[in-house]
């Protein structure tokens, strides 16, 4: 394959990564924005979503019905688990930022190790509901002007297109929820000033549990969407957490639009860099990037500078 089609293939793969990443990072960003806590266990909610997708799909006997069922059930279950963790643990820490991080590290290991005990160390696939291969054309300057041709290997599956579309739809829904509904208004009020919101009769504790559950459900949804492409494995949360940290920090903590832009940027460049360079080197660059952004521009590359 020539360089051009190869680059296009890499960016298509990158777009799929970006879509999943945007969903996951939006959850992390939402939780940080409203509750001012960093949820280190976020990657495990993603992993749980993927693992539950396998469990539900295999109980339903595979096929498209199993996947659709998983798409509905896994985020609900994971959201409920997260809300329960919020009520039993985080609430009693008064959402103190440092103690919450330590507690969510604990939660990370609890979820991960329980999955290891229940599900085992194997990686397991889920069959995509549809998986038609769509060949893509490429333009080449031949004799007498541009010509279209179909290079061998340049293609995308219908399922991957569905992932990109589904992520965009869910993010649009999240935006509408935050800006156009009563519950979104409550969340934004809590984000601005928790005590004042409480004084105006907003059930802040329930809003917190809801937001923590919603953030986890978004991660779980990302996990369900990715599982037909990657397999479900109990350690898959670590890399996903790292990438979503990168996205949220570069996009500016707590800003949804910044998060989506950063997810596209990071997802695309991760796909492209990993194709051309060693993945380890790409990860080193990414981690150092996060560290330096936090040190020198803590409001994020796209966030507003705090006054």
């Amino acid at each position: 394959m020539d360089f051009g089609p190869y680059l296009m293939l890499a960016s298509l793969e990158g777009a799929v990564t970006a879509a999943v990443l945007a969903l996951m990072a939006a959850g992390l960003s939402l939780v940080f924005g409203v509750m001012r806590v960093v949820n280190v266990a976020h990657g495990e909610f993603y992993m749980l979503g993927a693992v539950l997708a396998w469990v539900v799909a295999s109980m339903a006997g595979g096929g498209a019905a199993g996947f659709v069922l998983a798409l509905a059930v896994a985020p609900l279950v994971v959201g409920a688990v997260a809300a329960a963790a919020d009520v039993t643990v985080l609430k009693h820490l008064d959402y103190d930022p440092e103690r919450t991080i330590v507690a969510t590290i604990g939660l990370l290991y609890i979820l991960q190790q329980l999955t290891l005990m229940g599900y085992g160390p194997e990686a397991r696939p889920v069959e995509p509901p549809f998986n038609a291969r769509i060949a893509l054309p490429w333009v080449e300057w031949g004799q007498g002007g541009p010509q279209l041709y179909w290079p061998w290997g340049l293609s995308i599956t219908s399922y991957k297109l569905f992932v990109i579309g589904a992520a965009a739809a869910v993010l649009a829904g999240l935006w509408a929820l935050m800006t156009h509904t009563r519950i979104g208004l409550m969340m934004r009020a809590t984000q601005l000033d928790g005590e004042m919101a409480q004084a105006f009769g907003i059930p802040v504790e329930r809003v917190y549990a809801l937001v923590f559950g919603l953030g986890a459900a978004l991660a779980a949804l990302a996990g369900v969407l990715i599982v037909p492409i990657q397999q479900a494995h109990y350690l898959m949360g670590g890399d996903a957490l790292l990438l979503s940290f990168i996205v949220v920090i570069i996009g500016g903590l707590g800003s949804l639009a910044g998060t989506v832009i950063a997810a596209i940027l990071i997802g695309m460049s991760d796909g492209i860099i990993s194709v051309f360079f060693s993945p380890t080197l790409a990860k080193i660059i990414a981690t150092l990037l996060v560290a330096f952004v936090l040190v020198f521009r803590p409001e994020g590359l796209m966030g507003k500078r705090a006054r």
Binding site: V89, H92, L93, V102, A103, G106, Y109, Q113, M117
Partner: peptide
Amino acid sequence: AYMLIAGIALVLLTL
């Protein structure tokens, strides 16, 4: 899954 112990200990200690 011995890291489970570490996780539970972390949560209980902070609480």
